[in-house]
């Protein structure tokens, strides 16, 4: 059974704009399921899915688990702090053992870039990348696209700026690929020490100052600034980061238009984003979380070979 997405979802770099469009369109009918009293449809009944999390994650893991359960899949969670290497078993052995248990899909979160690709190359089950190192986080990219589309309509020509630590961000990479493929104009803004040296080669605009980004953008996707960036010397302090690059109410007030605010979470309030922005009228941060479940349901459904045109019917009748 070949799905419309192929065997795996490893990154948005490898999807066509039609495939992305398909996932977003498929997510639409699934949104409603989570609003029901009985949040469950039988679309993946009998499927076995393993959530393999080698890195701490709350939001993404729970979101996937809800998506799987609401589609009636049987799920197992494998959490492991630290890498497989530290654990003593290699990733390839873990993969082979899972395969031997005849599973249908693996959702993997791993600290090493390429880990999802590595797994997908070695097992026949479908692999969904739930974040690999600083490479990609495709379902986050998709839920960002869905949220932007909900609010801005067609993304063609819309201006989205990704703000902050692009260098270490898998969310940024998935956003850049996804937005570009959907016809949006993409910019990044952050200290140069937190942007890849070759960032211009992605075909994005680079803003040195957050004020320029705010003047330009229809939406800002504000990335989390990890504390370790300071200790490893990429920037001097979170205090200065907020003063120079923080998305603050004062800065947004000078914008020529209303700017949609996204954040993949978890937020550092008062660092990359101020509370009154995060909680303000143009913040769609919680909508992103809601959309995350629908998008992941769509991805699971499509990878399992579900017919896009039957997604509406797959919901079944609300009982």
């Amino acid at each position: 059974m070949t799905s419309a997405l192929g065997k795996d979802l490893l990154g948005l770099e490898f999807l066509s704009s039609e495939q992305i469009q398909l996932i977003l369109d498929t997510a639409e009918p699934f949104k409603e399921i989570s609003e029901r009293a009985i949040k469950k449809v039988p679309a993946l009944r009998g499927s076995t899915i393993v959530n393999l999390f080698f890195e701490n994650s709350t939001r993404t893991r729970i979101s996937f688990e809800f998506a799987e359960k609401r589609l009636s899949a049987d799920t197992v969670n494998v959490a492991s702090s630290g890498s497989s290497v530290q654990k003593g078993e290699t990733l390839v052995d873990t993969a082979r053992n899972l395969e031997a248990m005849r599973i249908d899909m693996v959702v993997i979160r791993h600290g090493a870039s390429g880990a999802a690709t590595f797994l997908a190359d070695r097992i026949e089950s479908g692999v969904i990348n739930a974040g690999d190192g600083t490479h990609e986080h495709p379902t986050q990219g998709l839920l960002d696209l869905l949220t932007l589309r909900d609010n801005l309509g067609d993304l063609k020509g819309k201006r989205v700026c990704i703000c902050g630590d692009v260098l270490h961000s898998r969310v940024a990479r998935s956003n850049i690929w996804g937005l570009t493929k959907m016809g949006a104009e993409v910019a990044v803004c952050g200290p140069r020490s937190l942007l890849p040296n070759a960032i211009e080669d992605f075909g994005v605009t680079v803003f040195e100052r957050i004020e320029q980004a705010i003047e330009w953008a229809d939406a800002l996707n504000v990335l989390r600034l990890q504390l370790e960036r300071m200790t490893s010397g990429y920037i001097p302090s979170s205090r200065e980061y907020n003063r120079v690059f923080g998305v603050t109410r004062e800065r947004l007030d000078r914008a020529p238009r209303d700017i949609l605010i996204l954040h993949p979470g978890p937020m550092n309030r008062g660092v990359e984003i101020d509370s009154d922005v995060a909680d303000g009228p143009h913040s769609v941060i919680l909508d992103q979380v809601t959309n995350g479940v629908a998008v992941r349901m769509a991805v699971l459904y499509l990878l399992a070979g579900g017919k896009p045109e039957l997604a509406e019917a797959a919901k079944g009748n609300s009982r």
């Binding site: 870039s113 490479h135 990479r173 070759a198």
Partner: peptide, 15 residues
């Protein structure tokens, strides 16, 4: 190598 490929792959580059 540090460059566009390392940026795409999310691997730390060596300049």
């Amino acid at each position: 190598n540090e460059g566009i490929v390392s940026a795409r792959l999310g691997l730390k580059g060596i300049p």
